[in-house]
Design a protein around this nucleic acid. Sequence first.
DNA 1: TGGAATTGTGTCAAATTCACACAATCTATT
DNA 2: AATAGATTGTGTGAATTTGACACAATTCCA
Lengths: 236, 236
Amino acid sequence: MKRYPDAIRILVAIDCIIFGFDGEEIKLLLVKRNFKPEQGKWSLMGGFLDQHEDLEAGASRILYNLTGLKDIYVEQIMTAGKVNRDPVERTISVVFFALINIHDHDQEAVKTHNAAWLSLEKKPKLIFDHDEMVGKAIEFLRYKAALHPLGFELLPERFTIPQLQKLYEAIYNMKLDRRNFSRKILLTGLLIDTGEKDHQSSTKKAGLFRLDKERYKNKFYSFWHFMPHPGLVEPL
Amino acid sequence: MKRYPDAIRILVAIDCIIFGFDGEEIKLLLVKRNFKPEQGKWSLMGGFLDQHEDLEAGASRILYNLTGLKDIYVEQIMTAGKVNRDPVERTISVVFFALINIHDHDQEAVKTHNAAWLSLEKKPKLIFDHDEMVGKAIEFLRYKAALHPLGFELLPERFTIPQLQKLYEAIYNMKLDRRNFSRKILLTGLLIDTGEKDHQSSTKKAGLFRLDKERYKNKFYSFWHFMPHPGLVEPL
DNA sequence: TGGAATTGTGTCAAATTCACACAATCTATT
DNA sequence: AATAGATTGTGTGAATTTGACACAATTCCA
């Protein structure tokens, strides 16, 4: 009962780029494949789209299976469709981008899937066009994090300003001035001082902050900006 | 010979959002359908992906068929995949975003396809989820144009500063101060004064500028910025 | 010839950024 | 318990950028 008889039908995969931050560097949750093709090599976590499933639902399912987490920050970033990108059969892959707190996920599920957190800088070559996808994802992260208070998704509930700075330094691969960073970030009004101190640090204990979630929602479009942003401009 | 026997295969469409600027408002090149389904209604220009065609190639083909133009600014912006978005058969649509000079295209081809430039603000409701796609495209345009010297793609080779300002005002749907805008835009060093004047305008003739294409390439990532941009940061 | 509309250029106060200095807190060591 | 080393919290001033204006010049038209 095909009403578009001339058009071709193609396999649709979903691949997830899962970012985490361990306090020092950006990490990716990757899978060492124990199935074919490309068995034994590393790849992004992925799967095929189900019959009655929306794309976002497919991404959520895959992310849930691997991490046991729901309600995480997920966004579609691109679709890869080169003719020969999958050597087995033509497949287009819709790529999703997820940010999670590296300490907050189901360790068992990760082990079951043969997955691990690998450093972005030292990761091995991935299968197919997955390296290209990761490149796009970093680019996307750098854009988005410059415009929106997105980094918090990678940090624990309570965090210190030096921690936040290290995250930004990792994202942009550059050093930032401690004093200017602190001033700028506090001026956003997004941080609430919990009054507590971080007992992890070895010398002077840094103050612990948490995100003002109410303001986060409202200020999502006014983090650091120049031109007005989509959410602020009256929609046409 | 299907090696992924359990997975489903889905129709893949390509839809193009084509922006133009007539000097006053942002316009979309839309098609009044003389075919089913939804005959007689307006929609984005689209088509199905061919057997041996990459996504970008498909977008270029569709754009070329409608406008007769090659080498235009095209970028993939999203993929729509809701289960019932096409009532006939499940179809996922990869959406592309194109910027063209509204005066520079094949009028005949446009007529043949039953297409027309409609004002973004006054456009009719489009079929399926095409309105949603247009919404995403405007959002994308607003982001991108705030960070990169993208607007020039919508203007003729030579343009005046007031013209450029009107474009920005149309994109962001806001008034800008003439003097501050002029200062800012000239400071980017992207504009070359041709010495000529625009004889279209009715009172004082505005000076005609053109884009410094060499600098445009180099400064694409440093138009107006805060945090360093993907292209400037050393890739990981 | 003068008025209306529009363009080109300039000024100045306010806000923001950048590049620093210094004091306070905590651990470890003597 | 005193001190050195490391790290955090806060401040200061010069330079730059922004925002809100004023005014002169050009062109058409009455």
